[in-house]
Nucleic acid binder design. Structure first.
Lengths: 197, 197, 197, 197
DNA sequence: AATGAATGAGTTTTCATTCAT
DNA sequence: AATGAATGAAAACTCATTCAT
């Protein structure tokens, strides 16, 4: 009713868009992509299907937006660039591992969606690039850290840590609350902390 | 004159059934369960939909058959009971790890299906029990081996090895042929072989 | 500018819904429930199958709606409560019989559907309750009328009149226009009018 | 294994045919025509579908055979021609009514099938002739009896008795065992017995 | 004579997407 | 900007009928 400036409108649209993506992500992750209909999403966002289609060309594009969003949320550290500079590689690795476990505990669906898409990476072509890029980036980041720690085989170690993280996510999905998430976290972190250097 | 060698018919049916399961498994694993239609499977097996339904009551039952098949193939060792008895725990673990890598290289789809189901384990109820049981069994088996190796924290170590194995599977899906599967295998096996005891 | 007269939409939907029910009833009654496909109905209503399913969850629910509709139309008298109070039991029975014959002549399908369902009452569970309830209600209503007419065996007489009515409906289906519906009506009514009291 | 004469073979075929018809009738009547598959029938008769098709060209032909069979069974009196000659019209009517009630009690399905087909008489064309012929025959037979009883309006009375009989069948289907079949039978018979002449 | 494997058209139902209002 | 009615293609599943053996 009140007149809006162009800017306000644009902001409103951006906010709405994010809400759609976030709700869609939740549904995709909990029910699976094919088990979630556009109608379901529209209902969740409390918005008509028609309007939803003014934000995203089609379901696949919305999926990609959801993946982007999930990956950003899941891999973002709770540290600023400045804080990062003051840490040793060992400490950064600790931060990464802890960050991962936090996401796993607090935003289960994020990982559920990411991993399930990682596996069926080939079945929806447009998804492939996005997912595999993130895996490569993450592995490279770990690899560099191991290099600076003077690890004898950094590439190998980066792959192994990455695998361990994904695998724990899967076990957590399968075993549910009976899985000793905390204990395993301690164990892994200690493993890296006690390495020479 | 008689209605044709009864036994041959039964054998033919068994063989056909296995072919269906194997083809369905391939499609489920590469394209995803919901993305694979019964028509797709019928086309793959070169058989009418109707006939397919004389083998399996519905799509979900076929999925369960595929999972059974995948789990059996994927977890079966190439050793007889007798051979197993002559090995030390360390050597058995080596066998298990090697067996897993072999499956991963030779029957990619098996792992792809299993893991993808493991993640969305809740969305198809009839699947839940089967999958989580296998995860539990496998973890227990590893745990016992670590116990007999005198490992200080066998449960933890069993979870970690299980996670590592799953995670490597995922990375292999994402990175494809560029993934240094062999090298990582050597590295992991060496890691376990060099442990005290 | 506003999303279009909300009320009109709702009214339109109600009207459309009634049209579907009425057309479906006609097809169910003339061709049988199992012999009428959703496609047939959609074609009759000139509407896509998809839209039809936005009105009724499934075929069985549409059948139940058709039964409700048929029962209401078929058992409703053309009299108001007030008019009813001024009539003697004998006159009410006359009204009931005449009402039945009117429905039979003017809305053949109504009775056709009801009776055909009455017979196979067990084969579609959700239908059973509805149908048998109406039969019970109607019989009781007749019974009470015979009681107040001082009939020596009201229950028996109620069953007999009910049976007569159903049976005439069937004969009318079988014999078609050659059946002397009017004459039989007169005869039955006279029979009841001439009874003592 | 033992050699058969042509005659024995033919007899065997006739017997088998009758068994098929009788079993099919039972299934059609209890589950409905469209709810009974050829496979169901083959299973009931313990015979392959292929062989079944050597007896009947198609499902519709089998239905017609079942109707024929049902009508014969349902309308046949337990009296010989000779016995019939010695009865008065009144007594014959009594026999007919009692015969009907016996069938209703002992072979529920017969009536269930006949009536349900009578109603949907139009939906399967080949059935129409058969059914309506029997209704005509029966009505005529009753009419003649009422003529010889000197009834003032024999046609009307014949229709009414026919209708009553069908209607009672329907009520029996709907109300089940709670329906006072016996009592109603007595009442109807008494009604006709006490008529003057 | 007898089997049941095999087919394919048909059925109910769902859902991404478009469009009049 | 916003709605949800409307469409149509595709999915899972069934079954009468045919045919090789």
């Amino acid at each position: 009713m009140s007149p809006r400036t162009e800017k306000q409108l644009a902001e409103h649209r951006t906010a709405k868009r994010e809400q759609i993506v976030s709700d869609a992500l939740f549904l995709f992750a909990t029910r699976g992509y094919f088990n979630t209909s556009i109608s379901d999403i529209a209902k969740e966002v409390k918005m008509s299907k028609g309007l939803l289609y003014s934000y995203f060309e089609n379901k696949e594009q919305l999926l990609n937006a959801a993946i982007d969003f999930a990956l950003k949320e899941a891999t973002e550290l709770n540290l600023t660039e400045d804080q990062l500079k003051e840490l040793t590689p060992k400490e950064i690795i600790k931060e990464i591992i802890e960050g991962f476990f936090t996401v796993l505990e607090e935003k289960k669906e994020l990982w559920s969606l990411i991993v399930s898409l990682a596996i069926h990476v080939g079945s929806i072509p447009s998804v492939h690039t996005t997912i595999s890029k993130v895996y490569k980036d993450l592995t490279l980041q770990l690899q560099e850290l191991f290099v600076s720690m003077g690890h004898p085989d950094p590439e190998n170690e980066a792959f192994k840590l990455g695998a361990l993280i994904d695998g724990i996510g899967i076990q957590y999905m399968v075993f549910g609350e009976s899985y000793p998430l905390r204990k395993i976290k301690e164990n892994i972190i200690n493993g890296y902390m006690n390495q020479k250097k």
